[in-house]
């Protein structure tokens, strides 16, 4: 990670005392219990934790798709009240508009802003090029592989000039080889555009490979267990000794907590 002191400290994203409870039938389920988190502009943060720890819920609250039960999310010190084009979500199942071509999907955001056609086309071409899909510009999502679809989804939110890229297990459904190349492409795009990324995953390796910070979340109710800065040099070597030390450390934190919870359940 770059030295945080060297960056101009601007309060970008703050998650303040956010809790979330769902009503399931007659029961109340506490998905998030008082989460506090602060993220700087340009950071790459991974949220990691076992399923049910509320990491996706937290991401959806930041996106504005769900309202927190208490607390609030602030972007540039303004409370988030709903979805907005400053935040772009990349879903695990892509959520591309199936009736639009790749080009139309990517140009969707700019078109909403009522930009001039020429300008929209320029932006679209730029991001088509960035994700390497120029040849597939006129295809429909159904005619693409999973990896290509996820590239379109990334280009779609970037073309919309989003400042915060929210990624909900985006590579979870892809095969290992495609996942690897997309991880590298994402890092390249992140470095080139300076976009801030919050990336939900349950792969420790993925988290350590990608992020400046790994936020470990635990379930029942979901809360932040640890916030670990990853200070490995980029590009990172997945097979390196240091890399694996960090990975082991985080894995231990995750599993020790799961063990504790199980003991509690037995008691």
């Amino acid at each position: 990670m770059d030295d945080p002191a060297a960056k101009p400290r601007r309060r970008f994203l703050t998650v303040r005392d956010v809790t979330k409870t769902f009503r399931v039938g007659g029961d109340t389920v506490e998905a998030l219990g008082r989460v506090n988190l602060s993220i700087d502009k340009g950071e790459f943060v991974c949220l990691i934790g076992a399923s049910g720890c509320g990491k996706s819920t937290l991401l959806r609250i930041i996106a504005g798709f769900e309202r927190p039960t208490a607390g609030q999310v602030e972007l540039y010190e303004q409370a988030v009240t709903g979805p907005g084009s400053d935040r772009g979500m990349v879903f695990q199942d892509y959520a591309l508009f199936p009736w639009m071509t790749v080009r139309e999907n990517i140009s969707f955001g700019p078109r909403q802003k009522g930009m001039a056609k020429k300008y929209v086309a320029e932006i679209t071409d730029e991001y088509l090029h960035m994700v390497g899909l120029e040849k597939f510009a006129d295809r429909y999502p159904q005619q693409l592989s999973g990896g290509m679809k996820q590239r379109v989804a990334i280009a779609r939110v970037l073309a919309n000039e989003c400042e915060l890229l929210l990624m909900d297990e985006p590579f979870g459904a892809l095969d290992a080889i495609t996942r690897e190349s997309l991880q590298l492409e994402l890092l390249e795009i992140w470095a080139r555009t300076g976009v801030t990324v919050i990336f939900v995953t349950h792969s420790v390796e993925e988290a350590v490979l990608l992020s400046d910070r790994v936020v470990v979340m635990t379930a029942g109710p979901g809360r932040v267990e640890a916030d670990i800065a990853i200070e490995l040099e980029r590009p990172r070597d997945v097979s390196g000794i240091e890399f694996n030390q960090v990975r082991r450390d985080i894995t231990q934190r995750l599993t020790s907590h799961v063990g504790r919870r199980e003991l509690k359940a037995v008691a």
Partner: peptide, 18 residues
Amino acid sequence: VDIRLFEAAAMLGCDGSR
């Protein structure tokens, strides 16, 4: 309709009658 399509459209700045 998959609810995510509405979410995706909303985050890209589409709302109301559009």
